[in-house]
Simulated scan of single mutants.
Amino acid sequence: MSTLVGLDDRPTLADVATFAGVSLATASRVLTGSARVSEEARRRVQEAVARLGYVRCRAKRLPERSGGSVAAIVTEPSARFFSDPFFARLLRGASRTLSPVGYQLAFLAVHDPNEYAAAARFVSRGGVDGVLLVSSHGSDPLMLALRTAGLPTVVCGRPLSPCGVPYVDADNVGGARAAVGHLLACGRRKLATIAGPRDMAAGIDRLQGFSATLDAAGLESVVAYGDFSLASGEHAMTRLLERRPNLDAVFAASDLMAAGALRALRRSGRQVPDDIAVIGFDDDPIAQYTQPPLSTIRQSVEEQGSTMARHVLALIDKASTPDPQTALPTSLVRRESA
């Protein structure tokens, strides 16, 4: 006796993707003949098609890549997210990689425990295909939730604790060394730094590069801390001037903090760079428009976002394993402040 199979019982593209262990989007790319797929993924999808007896319905043909989504979870207050250009640059880079292959990029700014819990519930219930975790502080509770959920995750910056999740960072230590080396080469000898947060690897690593370079030169280091914001840089610079009024150079661990430092120096009557040189980190757009224009350490934030997106796509597609640790190069940009 033959058995008639109803239309609703036929295997779907989602069944093929599940059987092959790839994303729905990857299965769609294989069936439409796209070159943007690994040979291993192509082989698994073709095998799944044969085993399941899947037949594509051309009358309802899917686009080359079915829509997926990746969430960028930024663990900062919303006000910080919208005021710091780093985040917009990072997400722009990620979007430029995700959009052409059919993935939407969403973002969540989380700060208090209730927001953390809501974000963890959202992503663990299948709301997104992958996560870019940005601006992680200390032992981020989201990290554990994402690992428990088995969700493809890539972290922006080196996590403070080993977490078994790939991350993409800048060469923060090397960039700080280059900044201090430039100040020393200009004849500066009374240096201070406005360091970043002590619960973030970027703050720790940039401070390490600053301190190690001064130690090697036999010079004392003076440190004040900020949170990468303009206001914190202004406040830290004011405190530094009270402690060491004869400073002749400052390395700020972000351009926004450097811009805040310039405000405090103008208010104190110091001339930049004649009395005191200032150098930042990031090469954000603001660096070109401060008075004077800011010397800084350039990190390719857009490329960092793009690399994170490529890594998370590799994890989603299960086609390759991204590098667990990626450090992008930095370079010195000389302008008028130092």
Rank of each mutant, 00 (worst) to 15 (best):
L4Y: 14
S28T: 02
G33L: 12
F19E: 15
T32A: 12
T12W: 01
S23R: 06
A20W: 08
D15Q: 12
L13G: 00
D8N: 14
V30G: 08
S2W: 06
T3F: 14
V22I: 07
T12Q: 01
D15V: 06
T12R: 03
A25M: 05
A17H: 04
V16A: 11
P11D: 07
V16E: 11
S2F: 12
A14N: 13
T32S: 15
T32G: 11
S23M: 07
R29F: 01
T12K: 03
F19G: 04
T18A: 15
A17V: 05
D9Q: 15
G33F: 09
T12F: 00
A27N: 09
V5L: 10
L24N: 09
L24I: 08
V5E: 10
D9G: 06
V22C: 06
V16P: 12
T12M: 07
S2K: 12
S23C: 10
V30K: 02
G6K: 07
L13W: 02
S28K: 05
M1K: 14
A20V: 04
A17C: 11
V5T: 13
D15Y: 08
S28W: 09
A17S: 09
D8H: 15
A20T: 03
S34M: 03
V16N: 13
A25R: 00
D8S: 14
L13E: 01
S34W: 03
V16R: 05
V30L: 04
T3G: 12
S34V: 03
L31H: 10
T18W: 09
D8A: 14
A20H: 05
F19C: 13
P11H: 02
P11N: 02
T12G: 01
G33H: 10
L24G: 12
F19Q: 15
S23F: 09
P11M: 05
D9T: 02
P11I: 00
T26V: 07
T18H: 13
D8G: 09
D9P: 04
L24A: 02
L31I: 09
L7S: 13
A27Q: 03
M1R: 14
T26S: 12
A25T: 03
L24K: 01
V16G: 06
G6D: 13
S23G: 15
G21W: 02
R10W: 08
A20D: 04
R29S: 03
L31V: 05
A17E: 10
T18F: 10
R10V: 10
V22G: 05
V30W: 02
T32R: 15
T18N: 13
D9C: 11
L4G: 11
V5R: 08
V30M: 04
S23Y: 11
T26M: 00
R29G: 03
D9E: 15
G6T: 09
S2T: 13
A20L: 07
F19L: 12
S28R: 02
G21F: 01
V5F: 11
P11S: 01
L31P: 12
